[in-house]
Amino acid sequence: MELKNKKILVTGADGFIGSHLTEELVRQGIDVRAFVYYNSFNSWGWLDQSAKEIRNNLDVFAGDIRDPYGVKQAMKGCDVVLHLAALIAIPYSYHSPDTYVDTNVKGTLNIVQAARELGVEKVVHTSTSEVYGTAQFVPITEEHPLQGQSPYSASKIGADQMAMSFYTSFDTPVSIIRPFNTYGPRQSARAIIPTVITQIASGQRTLRLGSLHPTRDFNYVKDTVDGFIAVAKSDAAIGEVINIGSNYEISIGETVELIAEVMGAKVEIETEAARLRPEKSEVERLWAANAKAKQLLGWEPNYGGSDGFKRGLLETVEWFTNPEHLKGYKANIYNL
């Protein structure tokens, strides 16, 4: 599918990945409608910081993904929907799981129901590597069993299944993209990489962190964005679940050491109980198999392997240590 003659709706366009994706689509000359979360401040989230030429070429729709009427209104006239709107903080899902069902499961239902009624040409639904839980085998392929080890992951499993059910029941053209741990500029400080960077950048040398032994497959945001665009363009992706990951595994502890090295800081680590997941809820190991993405989409990470990860960290550190960016983060407070 050629996207340049299509109207594309991006839900969650105001968020971390969504803002990067929206900007890249506009840079490629694509007609984009950005669905942002309605608020009384008339904030477009991270899009407020986009370059003027980006903002001037956006069609912005403020609404709530939980509202089926508003979702359908936003989707009218759109050919492709890239659905990223979701609650994603795992700790907050322990606190308020009901909101995750409403936003992630029912929000996704609103998208695919409207897509079916409006005859949308393609829906790209965003999953997460958290749906796999602790790896039963590695690298993790798309056939790995799904395990809801947190209310967040359970809600995303429900959302994924809801999306795919419309493909199998009604031939709604749905693709599921399953990014592994995306990092980069603008990410919330509840995630490990921004947590470490903002604490060091704020002058702290005793870092307050959670578990260090779990492993992750970190995916730089530019690679994730390229993955979204590749899925949107691919007719072969319809009806498929596709991992987007670097195929490089590293522990949280090793990641902290690498960030400290990049930032030229000597640090000590202090375990903070509030940052620990319940024991059986911790996802101990994630490592993405990405052969399917290469085969179906021609997608490969540009920031893969240890060298690519270090390059991505350097770019991320550069962004966060800009005083204008750093002042937006509360490094001394643990974010749910």
Results as ranks from 00 to 15, higher is better:
124 V>K: 02
143 E>P: 02
146 L>P: 04
135 A>G: 02
137 F>D: 13
133 G>D: 00
146 L>C: 12
117 E>Q: 13
146 L>E: 11
146 L>M: 13
129 S>H: 05
139 P>I: 03
139 P>N: 03
136 Q>S: 08
124 V>I: 12
147 Q>N: 15
127 S>P: 01
147 Q>E: 14
115 A>H: 03
139 P>Q: 06
122 K>W: 00
127 S>F: 05
138 V>K: 02
132 Y>F: 13
118 L>N: 11
137 F>C: 08
134 T>C: 00
139 P>H: 03
121 E>H: 05
120 V>S: 04
136 Q>K: 15
147 Q>R: 15
130 E>D: 14
119 G>C: 05
120 V>P: 07
122 K>F: 02
144 H>Q: 06
135 A>V: 05
136 Q>A: 10
133 G>T: 01
122 K>H: 07
140 I>H: 06
136 Q>T: 14
123 V>S: 07
146 L>Q: 08
119 G>V: 07
125 H>C: 15
146 L>W: 12
132 Y>L: 10
115 A>M: 03
117 E>V: 13
142 E>D: 14
130 E>L: 06
116 R>W: 13
121 E>R: 07
127 S>T: 09
144 H>R: 04
117 E>P: 08
125 H>V: 15
129 S>T: 10
146 L>S: 09
132 Y>D: 11
115 A>V: 02
125 H>K: 15
144 H>D: 09
146 L>R: 07
147 Q>M: 15
115 A>Q: 09
133 G>C: 04
118 L>S: 08
125 H>T: 12
141 T>N: 07
120 V>L: 12
134 T>L: 01
139 P>S: 12
138 V>P: 09
116 R>K: 15
130 E>C: 12
134 T>R: 07
129 S>M: 15
134 T>K: 00
134 T>E: 06
121 E>Y: 00
140 I>P: 03
119 G>T: 04
126 T>D: 03
132 Y>S: 12
118 L>M: 10
135 A>H: 02
142 E>Y: 11
123 V>H: 05
145 P>A: 00
117 E>A: 15
127 S>M: 11
115 A>I: 04
145 P>S: 09
117 E>R: 10
127 S>Y: 11
132 Y>A: 13
132 Y>I: 02
125 H>Y: 15
142 E>H: 05
136 Q>W: 06
118 L>W: 09
143 E>F: 12
128 T>V: 05
141 T>A: 07
142 E>V: 11
118 L>A: 10
142 E>F: 04
144 H>I: 10
125 H>M: 15
124 V>A: 07
